[in-house]
């Protein structure tokens, strides 16, 4: 049964990448959108561009991993294609894990392109590579699981897009990318601590600076909890709906 699940997961992820993700408009949008945001901020406040790199990576990963993920499941529900997957000998958690894997793979691919540009511009001297890989993987998992939860919580594609943006845009401004957490009022700091993006930015900053802080383990742990929590919620919601 585990073999069926693993095979199903793998092929569902591959199919999603081919059918939905790896299209030129998705790739170009996934890369250009975060660059445009950061560039706009940098023009307004010229300063240390290097310090924006963790935020740029986190933002690319957030939109890359969650944008299509938030649409794909609800779209397949509408067309009936999801039923085809539910009828296959693959258990529900494995089915959703396959969907997550597709979102993560796309998010990590576009983020790798952005990371390559950042490393060419700013150098790779101080990067803690194992931490960077771990932070990217856990962030991608958390954001992709968030997208999956959004997708199973609604019934229409436009509802998924609205809900995803309702969650992501406030997160973008409260997640410590453009405004450091320390300079926020205590109430906003408390809200920021409830957002996965905050932990992704902090973990990526530690990895790029090569400084593993005591709080870095907590950041990685929080990302893992967000990934597991959103995934469990998505499985539960879809199981209820399928019945």
């Amino acid at each position: 049964m585990l073999r069926d699940d693993l095979r199903g997961m793998w092929y569902i992820a591959l199919k999603d990448l081919r059918a939905y993700y790896l299209k030129p408009p998705n790739i170009s949008w996934g890369i250009l959108f975060p660059f445009a945001f950061v560039l706009a901020f940098a023009i307004r406040n010229p300063g240390d561009l290097r310090s924006l790199t963790p935020g740029l990576l986190a933002l690319t990963l957030l939109f890359g991993s969650s944008s299509m993920e938030a649409i794909v499941i609800v779209f397949e529900q509408r067309t009936g294609a999801l039923e085809r997957l539910l009828l296959a000998p693959v258990r529900l958690p494995a089915l959703l894990a396959g969907k997550l894997l597709g979102g993560m793979a796309f998010g990590l691919t576009v983020t790798a392109a952005v990371l390559a540009v950042a490393l060419v511009v700013f150098g790779v001297g101080s990067v803690n590579w194992p931490l960077l890989v771990l932070a990217l993987l856990l962030s991608a998992a958390a954001f992709s699981a968030l997208g999956a939860f959004v997708s199973v919580a609604v019934r229409e594609v436009f509802e998924a897009q609205t809900l995803a943006n309702f969650i992501r845009f406030p997160m973008m401004f409260l997640g410590g990318i453009f405004v450091p957490l320390a300079s926020m009022p205590p109430a906003l700091q408390a809200v920021a601590r409830l957002l996965p993006l905050t932990y992704a930015v902090e973990a990526l900053r530690a990895a790029l600076d090569g400084r593993v802080l005591p709080t870095t383990v907590l950041d990685l742990g929080a990302l893992a909890v967000f990934a597991a929590g959103f995934f469990a919620l998505a499985v539960r919601t879809l199981a209820r709906r399928a019945d």
Binding site: R3, D4, R7, G8, Y11, I12, K15, R18, A19, Y20, T79, G80, A81, E83, R84, L85, A88, P89, V90
Partner: peptide, 22 residues
């Protein structure tokens, strides 16, 4: 409702079904 994947070819849709079922 015929519910295969619009984006995949006839051949790839059959291939994906076989992949899912081992």
């Amino acid at each position: 409702t015929s519910n295969l994947y619009d984006e995949l070819s006839a051949f790839d849709n059959l291939l994906f079904s076989m992949q899912l079922y081992g």
